[in-house]
Design a protein around this nucleic acid. Sequence first.
DNA 1: CTGAAAGCGCTTACAG
DNA 2: CTGAAAGCGCTTACAG
Lengths: 343, 343
Amino acid sequence: MTIKDIAKLAGVSVGTVSRVINHHPDVSDSTRLKVESIISREGFEPNSNARLLKNNTESDIAILIKGTQNLFLESLLEKIQILLAESGENANIVFLDESADAVKTAVQINAQKHPKGFIFLGGDVKNFSRSFAQVSVPSVLVTQDASQLGFANLSSFCTDDYAGAAEAVRTLLAYGHRKIGILGGYMSYNGEGITSPRLAGAADVLQEHGIPFDPEEDFTPSRFSFPDSHQAARKMLEKHPGITAVFTHSDVLSVGVLRAAADLHLRVPEDLSIIGYDGIEYTDYSLPRLATVRQNTDALARRSVEDLLFRICCGREAVHEKIPFSVDIKESISHHTETDGTE
Amino acid sequence: MTIKDIAKLAGVSVGTVSRVINHHPDVSDSTRLKVESIISREGFEPNSNARLLKNNTESDIAILIKGTQNLFLESLLEKIQILLAESGENANIVFLDESADAVKTAVQINAQKHPKGFIFLGGDVKNFSRSFAQVSVPSVLVTQDASQLGFANLSSFCTDDYAGAAEAVRTLLAYGHRKIGILGGYMSYNGEGITSPRLAGAADVLQEHGIPFDPEEDFTPSRFSFPDSHQAARKMLEKHPGITAVFTHSDVLSVGVLRAAADLHLRVPEDLSIIGYDGIEYTDYSLPRLATVRQNTDALARRSVEDLLFRICCGREAVHEKIPFSVDIKESISHHTETDGTE
DNA sequence: CTGAAAGCGCTTACAG
DNA sequence: CTGAAAGCGCTTACAG
């Protein structure tokens, strides 16, 4: 069933059918009604390839998500996909390994499928400076700041990670902790985007409070997965038994810490306090409930989709917004009282 | 840059360029090399819409996933998407609410975008009988049995849920439990596919062992999410304080039970044993580690993709396979000793 | 308001 | 082995 068949059935030309389908104003009401009734009677759906070929445009919005089993990015993904669907947009979702170069993949997809736009859920800033110039369509980087990159077609929506990390550490300090371990991502592939600001925010606050911070000693990298964070946390806790609190760069990592603490018979929060980052739903259901720096996923998703669609349709300039975060203090944090005399 | 430009640059006709691109054998080596070098030098990518229009075929495989925040289906989704990508297939992923009619959505997508095939991650069997006839392309239902539906274009790959549930309950019985609560999905939208066999398997084993089972009393429905399972589990445990073990139809529900048990100061497993279903990665990292009927997601994903692509290319008959499961007995189960004298 | 016709970028018989 | 040409299903100036 093609537009030609409909035209024949309706006794009009294909051009007229096309105009009806595309809601062109220049069609008489009677013709419109006749054609519409035949289209719906026949259940006709125009061939999307032909339309796209003519319009020289592609339908999809590609979403690249970094890291499998990353509950935070997955919840963002779902929200974004639902918002896109509500706007009648088609999402083409690609899961990538945490260490993969999302921009390189985007360049390929850009060349092969010419999507209307890209949404990057995570991705290393280094990779953007290296090859994003080859991506020609409006794009959005979510959860990381792209303002310094200066690409006219790349917006970004993220949390102020420096401030969030600072706030997390300030919270631990306020609860009396002085020996604080930090568990975060690998510098090599999350470095500039995520790990670096979250580490800097933490380090600066510690130093402001006269607590020396040595990244080599006090920071442990991990992939954002349960098994890796479990291993990494365990190593960290064994190596630094004096630690009374941990700041993790992701709630997924907090789960690993929780597990490692149990292995070592450390009670949370009595022996070890934990604060994470992201604010995934699970943090309200863990034992104990996990404190976290909550990113506003609703706002991140909404603004990303709004901005992308707006720029696709109306060609505006890229924007860079920081979405407010909040610190959720929950059961995994408790006061530390100095029993060992050191400060 | 189109095929015409390449033809001009190479000094050949567009037909020849097309043959090179499509690896037709009838091209001389010298011509092939010349054209290929120009294509790669120019970074030319053929317009996919034009190809698809000619081939009268569409590129995508649509994946419909039921339930957001369903960690089990999400891990399946990731595996499937990665396998599809390895085969050069494009996945068009749509997240649906747990209560949505995935088949209705598929019928729409089928008409509008003509995907090559569908993969349903979850979905109610009732909805398939009602409207799957309108889906014309090869499809796969994962995690549920479609063999009774008799659609020639619908394969299914699942676990033997009746047997899995029976085995879970047998395990609890072997550990001395007699008062067993069951937490599962809503009959109204997961009924025939998931809840019904898992409930029947459990009920039959209980009755074999002379333990009466009344669905109204001993079964509590919940959505497959943390907050809902938490509420439902809490209600169940408060209403039936005699329960010493819970069988949940999903590990996500077990998390809710864990949380509800903690609220009520019940220790797991000392006061309450838990066994779930699915085998999500998290069950190895919870406190305590959660026993579960582990579905083989690797095999489910692999077989689903293999079968779908095979049927798309070679038009074979649909198949229905049961993928073996395994029962993982972990820390959330302990022996129950009869202290109250009843049996 | 409507039709006839060109053309989007590609593929593939048909000739040679 | 290669070219010229028709055609996939649609859209849209151009006439009228």
